Amino acid sequence: MAAPVTPFLWFDDDLGDALELYGRVFPDFLVHEKGMAGDAVFTATFECNGQRFQAMNAGPQFPFTEAVSFMILCEDQEETDHYWYGLLADGGVESQCGWLKDRFGLSWQVTPKRLLELNGDPDPERARASMAAMMTMQRIVIADLEAAVAAV
Rank of each mutant, 00 (worst) to 15 (best):
F29T: 03
A67D: 07
L118H: 08
L15M: 11
G59K: 09
G91C: 10
L116E: 08
R103F: 05
Y22H: 05
W108Y: 09
N119F: 13
H32I: 08
G86E: 03
Q77M: 13
T136V: 03
F11Y: 13
K113Y: 10
R52C: 13
Q54L: 14
A58Y: 08
F104E: 00
D17I: 00
K113L: 12
I72P: 01
L106S: 00
M56T: 03
E66W: 04
D121C: 14
E125N: 13
A67M: 11
P27C: 02
S69E: 09
G16S: 02
E125W: 07
D12V: 04
M56N: 01
G35A: 10
Y22R: 06
L15E: 04
A150M: 09
V149D: 04
V5E: 07
D121M: 10
E78Q: 11
P4E: 15
V152Y: 00
W84E: 05
D12E: 15
L9T: 04
V149L: 09
H32W: 09
G59E: 04
K113V: 08
L118F: 11
A133T: 00
N57Q: 06
A18V: 02
N57W: 08
M71T: 13
V149H: 03
E125L: 15
L30N: 11
T43Y: 01
G91H: 10
R114I: 03
T80L: 07
A18C: 05
E47G: 01
Q96I: 11
A148K: 08
Q96K: 15
V31T: 15
T111S: 13
L30P: 00
D90K: 13
R128M: 15
L88I: 06
N57D: 12
D13M: 08
